[in-house]
Design a protein around this nucleic acid. Sequence first.
RNA 1: GGUCCCGUAGUUCAAUGGAUAGAAUAGAAGUUUCCUAAACUUUAGAUCCAAGUUCGAUUCUUGGCGGGACUACCA
Length: 631
Amino acid sequence: MRKDNAKSPIDRVEGGKYEQINRAIVSIWPHPPINHYFCSMSLVKTIQANVLKALTSIYSGSFTEKDFQINQTKPEFEGDYTIVLFSLVKSLKLSPETIGAQLGEQLIQQNPALFTAYNIIKGFLNLSIADAYWQGLLENQHNDRCYGKQAMNGKKVMVEYSSPNTNKPLHLGHLRNNFLGWSVAEILKANGYEVLKSCIVNDRGIHICKSMIAWQRFANGATPESTGMKGDHFVGDYYVKFNDAFKAEVKDLVEKGMSEAEAEKNAPILLATQQMLHDWEAGEPAVMALWKKMNGWVYEGFDVTYRTIGSDFDQTYYESDTYLLGKDIVQKGLQEKVFFKKEDGSVWIDLTADGLDEKLVLRKDGTSVYITQDIGLAQQKYDQYQIDKSIYVIGDEQNYHMKVLKLIAQKLGLPYADDIYHLSYGMVELPSGKMKSREGTVVDADDLVAEMIETAKNHTEALGKVKDFSPAELEALYQTIGLGAMKFYLLRVDPKKKMIFNPEESIDFHGFTGPFVQYTYARIKSILRKDAPGKSTAPKSPLLKLEKEVLYVLEQFPSIIEAAAIELNPSVIANYLFLLAKTFNSFYTEHSIGNAETAEKKHLRLQLSVMTANVIQSGMQLLGLSVPERM
RNA sequence: GGUCCCGUAGUUCAAUGGAUAGAAUAGAAGUUUCCUAAACUUUAGAUCCAAGUUCGAUUCUUGGCGGGACUACCA
């Protein structure tokens, strides 16, 4: 049953499609992006290789990494990593205990420098890793700024994100999009890709004309300058004014006896808007001038927002340039019988065999539709930059559209078809449901940013730790913390899932948050201003439990960066950083760093602090967050 | 109608088919002569329902129930 068949066209405009220019996860990242790290193989991979070698030498036969799993050992058991043996039981026809004992013995014999002990509980072989391994990692990598990052791999990726409409300001949904796009770009760079960030601006169309008409009629020449308003908000207000006027006209016509459906089609202001769109397409000078003027205002507003939140693009596309693209591709496809023409002259593709519908690609008047433009733009991106992968950060409501786009490209045999990837993310919803401008429930991006910075200010002042900061330093700090809280909040959730934002409850600064991680960093830096790890040749004493726990987490950073790239999922990084900060904080409260028991311990703990700070800093950078030296 | 997505503590989020389902927050109780208490410690609290596959299911399959998105000669 259709849910929205009662809605008027204007409802759909407000609550639906135009609201989100975000467009469609259908395909899978075809292969893990990289094979080796700058420095050394990850511990899990090392264990994997050792287990494979041991299995082969004990049981003779061929094994693959799929024959067993390696998990972190649960804290209630002795050991660091665990081999799950169940899947070997069938093929080897031995009990898990036997396999475990034989494998454990062999591993220790084979690599006594790495494995020190094992125990078997049920089908789980728990392995203990030598202290020397962790100590070596720390000694070698603690101040390696490239830790976890990979060498350039020669592949080029374009990440398209943000993609605003020029008839209204950015809202919370755009923020999720922007932060995701930015972070994914950073994550891919860390994995060795050359990344191009792009943005398609939806700067034309009936919705833009609505703001223009409303301004013409109601503004009396007012400008952002004359009203002191930010340009995008200024224009957005006229978009709202259009809708108010439209509704009033419809109501009026209905009272005069017209049916509601008729009235919605014939409201004078709507007809005027449609005329304006025609004039725009015809290049009518006055309309073009107005269009340029108003879009200019919006861009000035967007620039301010983008600068504040830290978004930028290597390439901006404008729909006014691209909306005619793709027609030649359709003509070619028509010849190749990928498309077919209906009697009225419109051109379609039949996707019913793929479980989809027939889709229009060219109107009967020969003009292109959204999907046609997107094919054209995809082609242009490929021609222009020879990209190996094209990622579209677009909301999940456009899953269908993006599926169609990819499918059409594949059927046309376009070389980049398989490299189109829709990074589909869920909407940000309010506790009451979707944000609706008609109900005034849209959370404005600028307002939210300002509120977060204000909250950061209040918290900071209440704590009074940075009273010696200059006003400029304070402002920078508030921004770092406020934006940090907001970015972390939006990125810590799996992008695929929709998330709920409650405007009544302000975004937290405690717990699983950006400021928590930032605070951990600032506290470490405070120690490192007084002390730095020098050289130590003292024999190493055994690692304490909490020291090892921090190292255990630090060791995983390279694998985490890789996993985040394979999944295109910044929340992997956010979860990791929180775990790291929490683990370090536990260590920090329990053990003194500056006044450690021995010089050797002090040295080790300072190195541990340096490495933790470095990893926090690079990890936060992958999320688009900066870290303060003090807070 | 069709296609797709989602149902986990009061709330917001985790969990490549693995051990006793993790966190955060809200609740209860503690920790400051010592490196930043935006921290730390303890405590209580959850897999929508029903079958199936499996040594093992939050995860996979099927069927319910509940929520959402899409299904325009709009972009």
